[in-house]
């Protein structure tokens, strides 16, 4: 009997925090994602103007041309908060670790032809520098963006990119037997080889892009939207002809990551574009511009692997990206 009384009397006096209740109603508990995402960023009563940007408040909607009535409309379809993000990544990291160990222990890379190994090194290793730029760009979006919904996801993305840069470095070390020679060659190529200069120029241009939403479109949609399918689908597919699945095993994280992350990117674009015609027009203009830039920047990389077929490969990727934009985000970027 005592148990019944105890159970009956210990009813909660509310189900969730007031800010969440104002958004979803007070009559039900909220998910962990929502309770620790909604309204985390301060919006009013800032004390001091930033010394580094006196024209804006610390958090300011004026740092992008995009306008939203509610910046928390950018809910992450993956519902990532820190805990779910790290746990997801650690599971993927377990798989990656096992793949690397498997390839390493059985010396599977020794079975891959020298030409293919060289090609793999030439394509994958310099990209770690591009991933580093993507890391800084997403940190920028986290730092100067507005509303926790999008900024926290950008911070996870930033760390993911550093992780990918490190996976690419590991691939280099596996290919060169831990001498670091591949990393040095890759950096040399990134700095000087003609193949990589357009892409390096693009990443440097992105690192000085000030509108954070434009940077989101340029990096996470345009550049990633062309480079990940090019590298981890098309080029990987080409290498498979000789390497079997050995190299794909080392890339699996990136492949899976891109599929997952695209859902987030698409949902952000869809939400922003659906908000107003002005947003939609602005995003389409950015997307076209940066897709053109990214296409040009990746062309020489595609040529390294596909030779004369590179034009066709790049045109195909651009068309797929346009279709994705249309279908997933309602954007016209033809």
């Amino acid at each position: 009997m005592a148990i019944e009384i105890k159970t009956a009397s210990i009813e909660p006096i509310r189900h969730t925090f007031s800010n969440v209740a104002r958004r979803q109603g007070a009559d039900k508990p909220a998910s962990r994602y929502l309770e620790a995402m909604y309204d985390l960023q301060p919006t009013v009563n800032f004390h001091y103007r930033p010394l580094w940007d006196p024209d804006h408040e610390l958090y300011d909607t004026g740092r992008t041309a995009i306008d939203m009535a509610d910046w928390y409309a950018f809910r992450d379809p993956r519902q990532f908060y820190y805990g779910t993000w790290t746990i997801t990544r650690s599971k993927q990291q377990d798989v990656a670790e096992r793949n690397y160990a498997f390839v390493d222990k059985r010396n599977l890379l020794d079975l891959v032809g020298a030409g293919t190994r060289e090609r793999a090194e030439a394509v994958f290793v310099p990209l770690r520098h591009a991933e580093y730029a993507a890391n800084l760009n997403n940190m920028y979006i986290c730092a100067y963006g507005y509303g926790t919904a999008i900024t926290q996801a950008a911070s996870f993305n930033a760390v993911d990119r550093l992780g990918i840069a490190q996976y690419l470095s590991r691939i280099g070390l596996m290919l060169d037997g831990n001498t670091c020679e591949s990393l040095d060659r890759g950096k040399q190529a990134w700095l000087e080889a003609e193949t990589w200069q357009p892409l390096r120029r693009l990443t440097e241009d992105l690192m000085v892009t000030r509108d954070w939403f434009e940077l989101f479109v340029a990096q996470n949609f345009a550049l990633d939207g062309l480079s990940f399918p090019l590298v981890y689908e098309r080029i990987d597919g080409e290498l498979q002809k000789d390497a079997g699945s050995t190299i794909s095993m080392l890339n699996e994280f990136m492949n899976e990551w891109y599929g997952e992350t695209s859902r987030w990117v698409d949902s952000v674009l869809k939400t922003a574009a659906a908000e107003s015609d002005a947003n939609k027009a602005q995003i389409e203009q950015w997307a076209r511009h940066w897709c053109d830039r990214a296409g040009e920047a990746l062309q020489p990389v595609a040529t390294e692997v596909f030779g004369e077929r590179a034009d066709e490969v790049m045109a195909g990727l651009r068309e797929e990206l346009a279709t994705r934009a249309k279908k997933k985000a309602g954007l016209d970027i033809e």
Binding site: H129, E131, Q166, S169, L183, R200, R201, E204, M207, V208
Partner: peptide, 18 residues
Amino acid sequence: KFTRDLAWEPTYQKKSDI
């Protein structure tokens, strides 16, 4: 190798702008 070696000295943009 996994951190600071990722960066490079920019030439297309000024470091002070980055």
